[in-house]
Design a protein around this nucleic acid. Structure first.
Lengths: 186, 186
DNA sequence: AGGCTACCATACGGCAGCGTATTGACAACG
DNA sequence: CGTTGTCAATACGCTGCCGTATGGTAGCCT
């Protein structure tokens, strides 16, 4: 964390995103954030009109990054092979899992905020479209491809959300098996 | 809500669970709850030592209900047929979905609270054990059964968590397809 | 009837966080 | 070298909530 004399608007957004990830929506408070950034509220209210404005900004950047960056990264290493795309997605799961914590907070919010729900819907539609396309390219019929896409996407959340122990095997192995199962032809 | 002169400890727990479902963890505040119950804090601090004590009580009853009641209900209508068990589970999904909102709040909490995470783990282990057993009864080998159980359980969360639109088909149909897919033999 | 118990109201002190207003510091620029 | 624009500190009022303390009331028990 830079101790540079001044903070940019993006500095605040980044810090807020971290707070969201580590502490949930309750942790998105301006005075604690100011302390974390080594400044006072005086700075914040120059960059933002209110706490809500900060939250909006955080959601804005989440929406951008969440649809673009990940897909591009996965696509880059897949070379148009759908199976490799899906496996690449899972190989990056551990990198994603910290992002996922922030996403869960956002989705928890979406449960009771119409506007947030709309944002989540836009993100989900784009990500589902991507997954659906991969399964169709594997030769699956539309309905099944949709189902598999939904299963894959759900598993992504299940992975962070469920704490089950799986007896003697590891979570990683279970996930591996699941993906294998999802990739098998109709 | 009853306007009876006095409130029991369970009244508070019930109200708190509703608040958790509708407003997230932030909504679990004693003064607003008192208003909702038509009493004052004086009542609360007779039944509970603190706000945390209330949260613990809520988690206690969630843990009980979440492992026992649902499974029993599903089992009752399934008559030991694993496929029917799993389909029954999904037929009850809409009844469960309001409970799920509270669960998401709890799981969001579990992301950053060790003690809550342990509770969730206990619940998940029991529910996964149930699912795993059904798939094994269908004749699937252990590894695959575990993977299918994880996929099924994840889908349960995905259903409430993802807001995707599925084009011309409905969520219900996608779920139907997904379950059919999960039930197919090895 | 008197009193005990269980439950609730009222009133209080305290704190954390929001937003505002005002002033200050410093850099860039003309 | 002063002016302007950008960012930050300080100080303030306000609200919502926690927890405590204390007193009140209604029903049961004897």
């Amino acid at each position: 964390m830079a101790t540079s004399p001044r903070r940019s608007r993006d500095d605040w957004i980044r810090a807020a995103t971290v707070a969201l990830r580590d502490g949930g929506v309750d942790a998105l408070r301006v005075e604690p954030l100011a302390v974390a950034l080594g400044v006072t509220k005086g700075s914040f209210y120059w960059h933002f009109a209110s706490r809500d404005a900060l939250l909006e900004a955080v959601l804005d950047t989440w929406e951008e990054v969440g649809t673009g960056a990940i897909i591009v990264a996965v696509d880059a290493e897949a070379e148009d092979d759908p199976e490799r795309s899906l496996r690449a997605l899972w190989r990056r799961t551990h990198e994603l899992s910290s992002e996922m914590r922030a996403e869960l907070a956002i989705r928890d919010l979406a449960q009771r905020d119409e506007a947030v729900r709309d944002r989540v819907r836009r993100v989900d539609d784009r990500r589902m479209a991507y997954l659906r396309r991969q399964y169709r390219r594997l030769g699956l019929p539309a309905g099944l491809a949709e189902a598999r896409a939904m299963l894959t996407y759900s598993l992504l959340f299940g992975n962070v959300l469920v704490e089950a122990t799986h007896g003697r095997t590891s979570r990683a192995r279970v996930l591996q098996r699941a993906i294998d199962d999802l990739l098998r032809p109709a």
